[in-house]
């Protein structure tokens, strides 16, 4: 009962956040240099008929509030994000849609690798808190955490692609390269460095988070009980501390997803990886605001979803939340 109310509250929060993003986007749309009208008119590739249709759809002939706002929210909810300035007046949704796959590939794999490695490093350093291994590990995590993603990427290219020649420097595939299995291998060779960059950039964050919650758990009564039981260290860490320490990490990691994605976008620029990040930079150079807003909206919704997912996961993992006890 209480658990359901908790989840409903989270869901409500997520919806409120998305509505606020829409409002923000709407305001930005009005703030844009020149009215949306003129922004459209500046776009030579949009036909007069399409422009008139858009005017009606967005209610540009009506007052800004509330008619235009309602029209905007309605259109957006229907998936109508407007037209790209740069991409020949194509619909924003279709331009963005093409770029999601490549981004998902490197961000997704990078995230998985970083979680695994970050958890391992964080658990190791947290368990040894205050000792030499912890100091070194934590400093390493802090350094990784403090590196701009794009710089890390540039370093990796210089070392592994240019100097050692092990991997390609940029792009998603060799032009005119093979298909099939070999094509997949080619893709992976191109993806390796971007993935490594994202993973390395993230490891520090996860390690730092987990280290502090492991170190905190060490003071808990149940750890004393586990020790008194004569369990081995490894068992105490895995069986007793991690199930507890992972919980806040899940939440904080989800909270930080937005930041992570922002950083990951710059990795694509470094590697000329044809995903949302590269698209964003191109859009920025040609002041293609509809694309920028579309990317912002898409990423916002993804991040809100990630947080909702984390909440659900949390309530699965923590019996106290599952049964509606206090958190």
């Amino acid at each position: 009962m209480k658990a359901r109310r908790w989840l409903l509250g989270r869901l409500g929060g997520a919806i409120a956040t998305i509505l606020m993003v829409l409002l923000l986007n709407f305001v930005l749309f009005r703030l844009m240099p020149g009215s949306p009208d003129r922004a459209l008119a500046r776009n030579p590739r949009v036909s007069a008929a399409a422009m008139e249709a858009a005017r009606v759809r967005w209610g540009l002939d009506k007052p800004i509030f509330p008619d235009q706002l309602i029209a905007y929210v309605g259109a957006t909810l229907k998936g109508d994000f407007g037209y790209s300035v740069k991409y020949g007046g194509r619909e924003v949704t279709s331009v963005i849609g093409e770029k999601i796959g490549p981004t998902l590939l490197i961000v997704g794999l990078g995230e998985i690798i970083a979680l695994a490695a970050g958890i391992a490093l964080g658990a190791w350093t947290g368990w040894r808190r205050g000792r030499f291994g912890d100091r070194v590990g934590t400093l390493g995590a802090l350094i990784l955490y403090s590196m701009p993603y794009f710089w890390l990427g540039m370093l990796l290219i210089t070392l592994f692609a240019t100097t050692l020649g092990w991997l390609p420097t940029s792009g998603i595939s060799t032009p005119g390269g093979p298909g099939g299995i070999e094509g997949a291998i080619d893709l992976l060779r191109h993806a390796a460095l971007p993935i490594a960059t994202i993973a390395l950039g993230l490891i520090g964050q996860y390690a730092i988070l987990l280290r502090s919650s492991v170190a905190e758990s060490l003071r808990e009564g149940y750890v004393l009980t586990a020790r008194a039981k004569g369990l081995r260290d490894e068992r105490i860490l895995r069986g007793h501390i991690l199930p507890n320490a992972l919980l806040p990490t899940v939440t904080l990691a989800a909270l930080n997803a937005g930041y992570v994605i922002g950083g990951a976008l710059t990795v694509e620029i470094v590697f000329s990886w044809p995903g949302l990040g590269l698209l964003t930079q191109e859009a920025l150079q040609s002041r293609d605001y509809p694309i920028l807003q579309g990317v912002f909206l898409l990423l916002s919704v993804s991040v809100v979803m990630a947080n909702l997912l984390a909440d659900l996961l949390y309530s699965r993992l923590d019996p106290r939340v599952r049964h509606g006890a206090a958190r």
Binding site: G13, A16, T17, M20, V21, L24, L28, L31, M32, P33, L255, A257, G258, Y259, I261, G262, G263, L265, T280, L284, R287, Y289, L292, Q293, V295, F296, L299, S300, V303, V304, N307
Partner: peptide, 25 residues
């Protein structure tokens, strides 16, 4: 509520949009 929204959102992307708009203004 507003603070939480800003905490969650990819504010970096928001900054990317805002900077040129502000500059043109």
């Amino acid at each position: 509520r507003v603070a939480d929204t800003f905490l969650i959102l990819p504010t970096f992307v928001l900054a990317l949009i805002l900077a040129p708009i502000l500059r043109e203004l």
